[in-house]
């Protein structure tokens, strides 16, 4: 069964672009990654899907229904917005109970469990919480009714690495119990960890829809190194290297291919420094653009 069906979805804000002709189907039990730089249209897609803004054309459905015609389908949806804002003057527990009151089931036990996992003090006033702690409230709030579809919009911003890990474990647990996860992010690495499929969106259009496994085969690394002695000119004249910049004793390039062969080549030098990073999204996007041309 398809949990999310987005067909030819277009949204314009007046004359400015939102998203153009987005098509996505997400099956039950999937963890789906939605990747793109800021302003690419990730949040617009989600907000249209959730019925907060109207599509200019096309359709977006959850469990086969539009949120505009059947708001009750949102009963099975948990949503964590990218920026969390709550009512002033409420304690965390009051807010969570208010949220739970919309779902017609007793969520008290789940609230306590989640608060314990996320290390959240339920009796504090929301105004007094830090950004990261507000984000935790958002996480608990999004999951307390045990939704069948979890929509996450940049969920990890503001969380420290330990909390991020707990959060990923939590989402993985929900997925194991059968929940479908729609995970929007601009950080490829965190999506790579969890997702079975990813869509890349840029300038409002989906430019790539791929299984994570095939994306990983194309795993790119940005490698920077400094050597103690000068490098010979053709040292990195091998397959899979692009954007090579050689300056005296330092080299900077993007590598795609077997990681062992590049490490062996690097091992030929006496190194002063070495960093191996995920290339940033822009560079991967550039690659996909290049492939399309």
């Amino acid at each position: 069964m398809n949990v999310i069906e987005i067909e030819k979805l277009t949204k314009n804000y007046g004359k400015s672009r939102g998203i153009i002709d987005v098509n996505l189907t997400i099956e039950q039990g999937e963890v789906f990654g939605f990747i793109g730089p800021n302003g690419a249209g990730k949040s617009t897609t989600i907000r249209t899907l959730l019925g907060l803004i109207h599509p200019t054309s096309g359709s977006a459905k959850i469990f086969g229904k539009s949120c505009f015609d059947s708001p009750e389908v949102r009963r099975e949806v948990g949503y964590l917005p990218s920026e969390v804002f709550y009512y002033d003057n409420m304690r965390v527990i009051d807010l969570l109970k208010y949220s739970a009151s919309f779902y017609k089931k007793d969520c008290t036990k789940r609230i306590n469990e989640l608060a314990e996992i996320m290390d959240l003090d339920l009796n504090k006033k929301i105004d007094d919480l830090s950004f990261g702690n507000k984000k935790k409230v958002g996480i608990v709030q999004g999951l307390l009714h045990e939704p069948k579809l979890i929509i996450l919009d940049e969920p990890t911003s503001g969380l420290d690495p330990l909390m991020q890990q707990k959060f990923f474990d939590l989402i993985a647990g929900e997925n194991k119990k059968g929940a479908t996860v729609f995970f929007s992010s601009h950080i490829l690495g965190e999506v790579q960890k969890m997702c079975s499929r990813v869509a890349l969106i840029k300038d409002g259009r989906i430019i790539k829809l791929e299984k994570m496994s095939s994306l990983q085969e194309n795993s790119y690394k940005r490698i920077k190194l400094e050597t103690k002695s000068a490098m010979y000119k053709d040292a990195f004249n091998i397959d899979g290297i692009s954007k090579l910049e050689l300056k005296g004793n330092s080299a900077d390039f993007i590598y795609k291919g077997n990681i062992n062969s590049i490490i062996r080549r690097i091992g030929e030098f006496e190194l002063a420094n070495l960093t191996i990073d995920e290339p940033d999204l822009e560079e991967i996007f550039m690659h996909y653009y290049a492939k399309e041309d």
Partner: peptide
């Protein structure tokens, strides 16, 4: 107060 995304995604 930007609580739209809290309230309006409720069923």
């Amino acid at each position: 107060d930007k609580t739209t995304e809290f309230l309006m995604i409720k069923p």
